[in-house]
């Protein structure tokens, strides 16, 4: 579907495609540290239930995923794997950086083995702060991302600032 990325589709069709993408975000099951449990609570627990937002947490392979949540500390040893998994995802793809560790290193800001921010290795669309963020905060991040997807112009995609959940 190179047409979508090129932005050569007529406006109404783009809008239709955007709405479809918005409500069928397949999110890769990818847990790193403490935040993974809060992500699990958001994705698997009946109380938060991410599926009602049209986010489907099923793919166990990055090749089927549209969205990846980097949930937790990225260490220097893990960083190449994160990068490789991101590269395996098909375009258009989105990244949510969940928690202080993934945002900037968090409590391990002075550690010798922690990557200070996953944005050093992959582009991030949404930053969700917290240590760990509550599941509601992650859902807020997802909703904000969906709003952006709804009015997205593919040619302009890489020129935008990331969303920061406040």
């Amino acid at each position: 579907m190179g047409l979508v990325e090129n932005g050569k589709l007529p406006g109404p069709l783009t809008k239709l495609l955007n709405i479809s993408r918005k409500y069928s975000l397949w999110v890769y099951q990818w847990g790193l540290a403490c935040c993974a449990i809060e992500m699990g609570a958001a994705f698997a627990s009946p109380r938060y239930d991410v599926m009602r937002l049209g986010v489907i947490p099923f793919p166990a392979s990055p090749r089927q995923a549209d969205l990846v949540v980097i949930s937790g500390t990225v260490t220097d040893k893990m960083a190449p794997a994160v990068r490789r998994l991101y590269e395996q995802m098909p375009e258009p793809k989105y990244v949510i950086s969940m928690g202080s560790c993934a945002n900037c290193g968090g409590p391990y800001w002075d550690s010798y083995s922690v990557t200070k921010g996953v944005d050093q290795i992959i582009p991030v669309d949404v930053y969700v702060p917290g240590c760990p963020p509550r599941p509601e905060a992650l859902l807020e991040g997802i909703v904000l991302l969906q709003e952006r997807i709804a009015s997205e112009d593919m040619t302009d995609r890489w020129n935008r600032d990331p969303i920061v959940v406040t």
């Binding site: 290193g105 800001w109 002075d110 550690s111 010798y112 200070k116």
Partner: peptide, 8 residues
Amino acid sequence: KDFPLLSR
């Protein structure tokens, strides 16, 4: 003890 934490 002589290994520095460079971030600091």
